[in-house]
Structures are given as structure tokens and as C-alpha cells.
């Protein structure tokens, strides 16, 4: 799982059947140098490419979420679904203390 800030949402008009009723967030992942510490997300965007994440927890724009990438992102679905990033947590607080 990685953390990122929700910077937008996507609504699909045409999609494969198993995407029916899905909710899609555009997320910008945090990098080590610009990480959240406390309850407020860092402002601005990180150098990491943003990605679209399937969301069933109700994440909102400006919120920090934990998302999981890879094949494991599709495990909660009843039938095989080509989702490779899923929101697994709506983050309240992060304690980050790098050993710089």
C-alpha cells in the first residue's frame, strides 16, 4: 500500500461491464521527501505519476488515502476485474519521522 492525495475524480461513460457503478479517484502518490506528518496532506504535487484508483470507501478530493496496486487490488471483486489500484484506507493521521 502507498499513500497519496486525492486530486480529482473520474466518471466513465463507456466502460467494461464489471466496472459498473464503480467510483474512480485520481491520486497523486507521496514521495519520501514530501510526506504527510500529522493530519494535513502536504500541498502541491509530487514527482510521482498520478493514477486512477478504484474506491469503495468514499474518498474525497483533498483527502489522503492508502491505495494498493498490483494484482491484489482485484481480489475483493466477485469476478475477475481488470482493476490494478484500489483504495484500501482513508487516512486520518500519519506519523512520519525520517532518519535524515
Amino acid at each position: 500500500m502507498r499513500l497519496g492525495k486525492v486530486i480529482g475524480r473520474v466518471t466513465l461513460s463507456q466502460a467494461i461491464p464489471s466496472f459498473e457503478g464503480g467510483r474512480w479517484l485520481v491520486v497523486n502518490p507521496y514521495t519520501g521527501d514530501r510526506y504527510q506528518n500529522g493530519t494535513t496532506p502536504p500541498d502541491g504535487l509530487s514527482a510521482e505519476p498520478s493514477l486512477v484508483v478504484f474506491d469503495a470507501l468514499g474518498g474525497d478530493v483533498g483527502q489522503t488515502i492508502g491505495f494498493i496496486e498490483g494484482r491484489e487490488a482485484a481480489t475483493p471483486f466477485p469476478e475477475p476485474t481488470p482493476v490494478d489500484a484500489i483504495c484500501a484506507a482513508l487516512v486520518d493521521t500519519v506519523y512520519h519521522d525520517p532518519m535524515k
Binding site: 468514499g58 484500501a88 484506507a89 482513508l90 493521521t93 500519519v94 506519523y95 512520519h96 525520517p98 532518519m99
Partner: peptide, 22 residues
């Protein structure tokens, strides 16, 4: 390098320590 607190999450993560690993 830290940990994450998230009350609203996938039920399977309930009760697990979520550690920030660099």
C-alpha cells in the same frame, strides 16, 4: 519511519499496525 492511522479502511486491515517503510 512511521505509522498510519485510518479508521475507515478495508475490514481485513482492522487491528493491524500500518507501518511506513522507506
Amino acid at each position: 519511519e512511521g505509522n498510519v492511522v485510518a479508521t475507515r479502511k478495508h475490514p481485513s486491515l482492522e487491528g493491524w499496525r500500518l507501518m511506513v517503510c522507506q
